[in-house]
């Protein structure tokens, strides 16, 4: 499953990366690669079954435990 995902991601990534390379927009290319890699790694970690924290739950915990703000 993870290999299928890698192939799909590589295909999608290659489709978008051509424009900045052709136009020699190196800053755009770096931002593209960083955000794309971040998304890809997160997807692959989930496919591999690794538990990651839930975003909104963590923010709720921060407000509840640190700032003592809650509607419960």
């Amino acid at each position: 499953m993870i290999w299928v995902e890698i192939i799909l991601l590589a295909a999608v990534g290659a489709a978008g990366i051509m424009e900045p390379i052709k136009k020699k927009w190196w800053k755009e290319l770096v931002v593209y690669i960083v955000i794309f890699l971040l998304g890809s790694v997160l997807l692959m970690l989930q496919t591999a079954g690794i538990k990651l924290p839930y975003l909104i739950d963590e923010v709720s915990k921060f407000f509840k435990i640190v700032l003592h703000l809650s509607y419960d």
């Binding site: 794309f36 998304g39 890809s40 997160l42 989930q46």
Partner: peptide, 29 residues
């Protein structure tokens, strides 16, 4: 493309359960 992929990778990580959505909405957002 990267800004579509990033939220896609985070959809499953947004809230832990249906019941938490309502609670999390009012306690964080």
């Amino acid at each position: 493309i990267p800004l579509t992929l990033l939220p896609l990778s985070l959809v499953e990580l947004t809230v832990s359960s249906n019941s938490m959505q309502f609670q999390a909405g009012r306690n964080s957002l």
